[in-house]
């Protein structure tokens, strides 16, 4: 018997080695996105250490100062240091979408796998439910929920999580349908393994890369939507530092000729969202390549 060979293509999609492979294949954009997001996450974690000022320190004498050595991004209309607020804002601005994505993935994957596995009326009912949610504008749904439960981060996150369920459910259902037909899943059924065991231990881990790609894309969209809701005043409430809320608060300063308070958080939102989109696309591309 010869030594084991690796003649067949790897079916591991997101192991450590594949991340290296992404780099080796020169996918510079994906790598750049990973670095940008890594920096953002680090900034969020290290906010108390690296922020030069207290983000909520009001000093009306220093209001609307242009960028200087003391305040690298200037100050806002209440004299708070914009850079410190952008740094602290990274926490809520990243945690919010994370909550949205976790919630919608949990429910969406459950619904998607359930309808793919059971088929029949379960699938029909779940699919109609998903279509109805699709037809309903996400932001409108969010505003509705906020109207009921009151504004704040928690209610906007729950609202958007509901609004994002269909995206996760639809993707999951389609890949789970294909995976369900594979011989190894059939073999497990044939061995008398319970549906719960097969789906949770075998099917879901195998479709996880697809789900991860979709969830990463959703993360970017959720960030925009959350910022939008904060901008509209439904989400994070001032004076808490949040990028969307900062853009909203900076509008007045913008007219008065101080673009920094609105521009800085705006630019960071764009960088973060673009990075998440690139990363999502990168993962999706890699999944397609390895499983095609």
């Amino acid at each position: 018997m010869t030594l084991p060979t690796t003649e067949t293509r790897s079916t591991h999609l997101l192991t450590r080695r594949s991340w290296l492979a992404i780099r080796h294949r020169g996918n510079a954009l994906t790598l750049a996105a990973v670095i940008a997001l890594g920096v953002l996450v680090l900034v969020a974690i290290l906010a108390p250490v690296i922020a030069p000022y207290d983000p909520n320190q009001v000093s009306l004498i220093d209001a609307l100062q242009p960028p200087s050595a003391a305040h690298l991004l200037g100050t806002d209309e209440a004299g708070r240091d914009v850079l410190s607020r952008v740094i602290w804002g990274a926490r809520i601005s990243l945690l919010g979408p994370l909550g949205v994505v976790l919630g919608s993935t949990l429910i969406g994957v459950t619904v998607g796998v359930l309808s793919a596995w059971r088929g029949g009326w379960v699938d029909a009912t779940a699919s109609r439910f998903v279509e109805i949610l699709f037809a309903f504008p996400g932001v409108l749904l969010a505003i509705l929920i906020v109207a009921v439960f009151g504004p704040g981060l928690a209610s906007t996150v729950v609202a958007l999580a509901v609004a994002y369920i269909p995206y996760m459910a639809r993707t999951t259902r389609s890949v789970a349908l294909a995976e369900r037909q594979t011989p190894y899943i059939r073999a497990l059924e044939l061995q008398g393994m319970s549906a719960w065991r097969i789906t949770s231990l075998h099917l879901v881990p195998n479709i996880a890369p697809f789900v991860l790609a979709q969830a990463t894309l959703c993360f970017g969209y959720a960030m925009i939507d959350l910022a939008g809701l904060s901008f509209l005043g439904f989400g994070v409430q001032p004076p808490e530092a949040d990028w969307g809320a900062m853009v909203a608060a900076g509008q007045a300063a913008l007219i008065q000729g101080s673009p920094a308070p609105a521009l800085a958080p705006g630019v960071v939102i764009v960088i973060a969202v673009v990075s998440f989109s690139l990363l999502g696309e990168g993962i999706a591309e890699r999944v397609r390549r390895t499983s095609a």
């Binding site: 067949t8 594979t182 011989p183 190894y184 061995q191 075998h202 881990p205 195998n206």
Partner: peptide, 15 residues
Amino acid sequence: AMIFQDPRAHVNPYQ
């Protein structure tokens, strides 16, 4: 117990 024609298709690639 049953064994199949194409063993590669009948195992969970992640396990």
